[in-house]
């Protein structure tokens, strides 16, 4: 158990760094899609296309670019995590009631002020639910990092497969699943509080 802790921590770091980058890029893309309506289709199409590419194929191609190691898996997870965040940001922003947008404009807020004081706060519960989906997915996909020389819990799992050792496979798998369920549970709880406040 003790020797697992470095793997768990590395796994978490990889996932959180990737999601962090994805949140920044994803929200920005979502805002761009909202502001410049003609970009919405291409942006959403791009994020969906990225997710359609088989994970192993994406990671393998990224490895050609970034080489073996954590950078590649972080890049892959970042791309994979984009879709839910972009889509939810965009949906959240366009579904802010028109009356509220009008009121904000009527009070003399600039476009940026409207975005940061009114629209994004109102869209945030939905954005957050996108982030949750991304984190939970990434925790599971990050296991594949071992195939392209990255660290994390993929390592013990892969060792287990190679040595046909069930215990070793499970020693990597169980922490991944517990983390996935835990994050899902905690972030769902936060999500519920957020939506309650929004109402």
């Amino acid at each position: 158990m003790i020797d697992l802790i470095p793997f768990i921590l590395e796994h978490l770091v990889i996932v959180l760094v990737a999601t962090g980058i994805s949140v920044v890029i994803g929200i920005v893309l979502g805002i761009v899609a909202y502001w410049l309506r003609f970009t919405a289709q291409p942006i959403l199409w791009f994020s969906e296309a990225v997710q359609t590419i088989p994970a192993l194929a994406l990671l393998a191609i990224l490895m050609i670019l970034f080489g073996l190691g954590n950078t590649t898996i972080i890049a892959g997870l970042t791309l994979y995590a984009l879709l839910p965040i972009v889509r939810n940001t965009h949906t959240g922003l366009i579904s802010v009631p028109a009356a509220i947008k009008d009121a904000a404009r009527g009070m003399g807020m600039s476009k940026l002020q409207r975005l940061f004081r009114v629209e994004l706060p109102l869209a945030f519960p939905l954005v957050f639910s996108g982030i949750k989906i991304s984190v939970v997915n990434s925790l599971s996909i990050a296991v594949m990092g071992v195939l392209i020389g990255a660290g994390g819990l993929g390592y013990p799992i892969y060792r287990g497969i190679q040595t046909q050792n069930l215990r070793q496979i499970m020693s990597g798998a169980i922490p991944v699943m517990i983390m996935a369920i835990l994050f899902d549970f905690l972030m769902s709880a936060i999500e519920r509080r957020l939506t309650k406040h929004a109402k």
Binding site: V136, L139, I141, V143, M144, I157, Y158, I169
Partner: peptide, 8 residues
């Protein structure tokens, strides 16, 4: 949520 690698 079981990672694909684990299932395999």
């Amino acid at each position: 949520t079981i990672p694909g690698l684990v299932m395999l």
